[in-house]
Design a protein around this nucleic acid. Structure first.
Lengths: 346, 346
DNA sequence: ATGAAAGCGCTAACAT
DNA sequence: ATGTTAGCGCTTTCAT
C-alpha cells in the first residue's frame, strides 16, 4: 500500500520498454517508428498504443550514432542583432524542414574566437552540413572545415573550392538605385560609402559603373562612411556643406541613410523636394512610415533557402560540385525619392 | 603506384584510430581527451600528436549516448525578427558557454504547430533543458514537457509548477515612466495600450496604479493600441483630436511610440515642446538620433542569463524547485520628454 | 598508469 | 512479418 509513488525522474522509456509492453521485439518497434510498412496491422497498433502510454520519444542521439548522420544542419550566424539575418534564417529553416532536416542555430557574437569554437562544436555534434551566415572566419579556417563537411556561405563572397556561396548581386543593386535616380532626372548623385562593410565594395563599384554608363562620370562622388547611422549623418553633413550640393544621395545601406536623413532635416531641407535619398537593404527601418525610405531589397528569405538547398544537395550527393549562387535585388520605391527641384544652382 | 589517392569522404577518425596510431588503448585516448590526469606524460604526448595528425574530433553524439546527457540546452524562440530576443539570446549563450553547455536555437516562426514540432525535436535530440522564449505554446503543452526536462520561460508569465519563469517587472516599469513624467510636471498623461501583447496588461496596470498614487486618477486615459507602429499612429491621432489634449503620451512599447511620434508631427506639434512622449523596451529604434525616444529599458541580456542559469541549476540539481525571477527595468531619458508647456488650455 | 569489457539506444543486415 | 545479432563511437567500471 505504501510503495513510493514512482521514482522521480526515471529515465525516459526506450525502444525496449515499448517492445516489452507491446509484446513484440524491438525490431518491430523500430520499424513502426520509422514508418516501414512490413508490419502487421495488429503489431502496429500494439506498438502505437504502448508508445503512447509510455510517452515514448525516439532518441535521436542513438539513431544518429548508428546512422552516422544526424539530419542536423548547423547554422553559424555572426550576429543575431543584425535584422538582415532573421529573414535569412526563416528561409534556412523552411528549406531544412521541407527536406526532413533540422536547422540548429549558434552564434559567435561577432567574436572570431567564439565563432571558431561554435563551428567546432557543430562539427563535434556531427552536423551533416553547415551554413555560415556572415561569419567572420578566415578563408583558411573555412577551407579546412570544407574538406570534412558540406558548407555554404551567406553574406561573404569568398571563393573557395568546395564551398557554396549565396550572395545578393550588390553591384547590380547599386546600379538599380542609380538608374532609378537618373530616370527621375538626377545627375548629381553622391554615394555614402560603406567602407569595409559586407558588400560595400560591390555597391560602390555598381554605383560608379552605373554613373559612367549614364555619362555621369563627372558627378561621381564617394563620401566615406561605415554603414552606421552616425557615419551616415556625418557623411551627409559633409556632402551638404560643400559648394555644389548633390540633388540626390545614395547611402549604401538603410542605417546610414537614416543618419543622412537626420542631417538633411537639420539643414532644413525637405526630402524629396530639396534632395532625394536612397538606402540599401530594405530593413524594417526603411518601412517605418516615419522614414519611408526608397531602397534596394535583397531577397533575404530566398538567400536562406538557397543556401540550405545548396548544403542539402551536397549532403545527399557527396560528389556534387559547390557553386556560386547570385540572387537579384529589387528596387523598392517609397517616399524619399522624387524629381530634382529646379531650384537655383548655387 | 596507381592506387586511388584516398577514398573521398572517408569517415572521420575515431578514438580507435587515434589509439592505434598512438600505440595505446582507446581508454587512454579517452582519458586524454577528457583531460583526466592519471595518464603518463608520454602517453599523453603520443595521443595528442596522433589526434593532431589525424584531425581527430570527439564525437559528441557517441558521448551523449553513453553519458545520457548532451550538454545541450534547447532554446525555442517564437520570433527571430523580434529584436527583443536577440539580446536575450546573447545572455542565454554567454551563460551556457560559461558553464560548459551549448545553446541550440530553434524557432517556430510564430506558428504554434511548428513550435510544438520544434520542441518535440529538441526533446528527441535529448536536450538537457529547454528555454522557451516568447513561445506561443499552451500552458498544458508546457506542463507536460516540464515533467521530463527542466524548462524556463522568458517573456510569458505563466505560473506552472516545475517551470522557471524570468520576467521584467512591467508593472514597475510603467510606474517608472509615469513617475518620470509627473516629476517633469505633467498631469494629463495618456496611455497608448498594448492590447493583448506580452506584458501589456502589466504595463497598463502599472500606469493606472502610478497615476492614482500621484493623485492623477482623474487623468487616466487608456487609448486602445496593439504594439504596432500603425496602431500607435492611430491611437495618437485619436488622442490629439479630442477636446483635451494630453501633455504627455506614454506608449506601451517603442514601436507604437514611433507611430505616435509620426501622428504628433503630422499635427504640427513639436516634441517635447508641445507634448512629451515615452516608449517602452529601449529597442534600437528608440536610440536612433532621429527619434531619440525616452523609454524604459528591460535588462534583456540579464533576462537571458537568468533563464539559462535557472535551467542549468535544475539540470544539475534535479530536485531543485523552479522559481519566478523578476528583474527590474530602468528609465532611459532621451529627447522626447520635457516640462509641459504653459500653453493655453483649450 | 593502462587495458579489457560492457553497454548507452538504436538501426540494419540477416535469418526464419 | 518478425526476431536475432552485430555494431555505431564513446565512457565507465573493474582488473591488473
Amino acid at each position: 500500500m505504501s510503495r513510493p509513488r514512482q521514482v522521480r525522474k526515471s529515465r525516459p522509456p526506450t525502444i525496449i520498454d515499448v517492445a516489452a509492453r507491446a509484446g513484440v521485439s524491438k525490431s518491430v518497434v523500430s520499424r513502426v517508428m520509422r514508418g516501414e510498412r512490413s508490419v502487421s496491422p495488429s503489431s502496429r497498433a500494439a506498438v502505437a498504443s504502448a508508445a503512447e502510454q509510455l510517452g515514448y520519444r525516439a532518441n535521436a542521439v542513438a539513431r544518429s550514432l548508428v546512422q552516422r548522420r544526424t539530419y542536423n544542419v548547423g547554422v553559424l550566424v555572426s550576429d543575431l542583432h543584425n535584422i538582415f539575418f532573421a529573414e535569412v534564417l526563416d528561409g534556412l529553416y523552411a528549406a531544412a524542414a521541407g527536406k526532413g532536416y533540422r536547422a540548429l542555430i549558434t552564434t559567435g557574437n561577432r567574436d572570431p574566437a567564439a565563432e571558431q569554437l561554435a563551428l567546432e562544436q557543430l562539427l563535434e555534434l556531427r552536423a551533416d552540413g553547415v551554413v555560415l551566415a556572415g561569419a567572420g572566419l578566415g578563408a583558411s579556417a573555412i577551407a579546412v572545415v570544407a574538406r570534412s563537411v558540406p558548407i555554404a556561405l551567406v553574406g561573404s563572397d569568398l571563393r573557395l573550392p568546395d564551398v557554396d556561396v549565396v550572395v545578393d548581386d550588390d553591384f547590380r543593386g547599386a546600379a538599380l538605385a542609380v538608374e532609378h535616380l537618373v530616370e527621375l532626372g538626377h545627375r548629381d548623385i553622391a554615394l555614402i560609402d560603406g567602407g569595409k562593410g559586407a558588400g560595400a565594395a560591390e555597391r560602390r563599384a555598381g554605383y560608379e559603373s552605373a554613373m559612367k554608363r549614364a555619362r555621369l562620370a563627372a558627378f561621381v562622388r564617394v563620401e566615406p562612411g561605415d554603414f552606421t547611422e552616425e557615419g551616415g549623418y556625418e557623411s551627409a553633413r559633409r556632402l551638404l556643406r560643400r559648394g555644389r550640393r548633390p540633388t540626390a544621395i545614395f547611402a549604401s545601406n538603410d542605417q546610414s541613410a537614416v543618419g543622412a536623413l537626420n542631417a538633411i532635416q537639420e539643414a532644413d531641407l525637405e526630402v524629396p523636394r530639396d534632395i532625394s535619398l536612397m538606402g540599401y537593404d530594405n530593413t524594417a527601418l526603411a518601412a517605418l512610415r516615419h522614414i519611408s525610405l526608397t531602397t534596394i531589397h535583397q531577397p533575404r528569405r530566398q538567400i536562406g533557402e538557397m543556401a540550405m538547398h545548396a548544403v542539402l544537395r551536397r549532403i545527399e550527393r557527396p560528389g556534387a560540385k559547390a557553386q556560386r549562387h547570385v540572387l537579384a535585388p529589387k528596387l523598392v520605391v517609397r517616399a524619399t525619392t522624387g524629381k530634382p527641384s529646379r531650384s537655383v544652382k548655387r
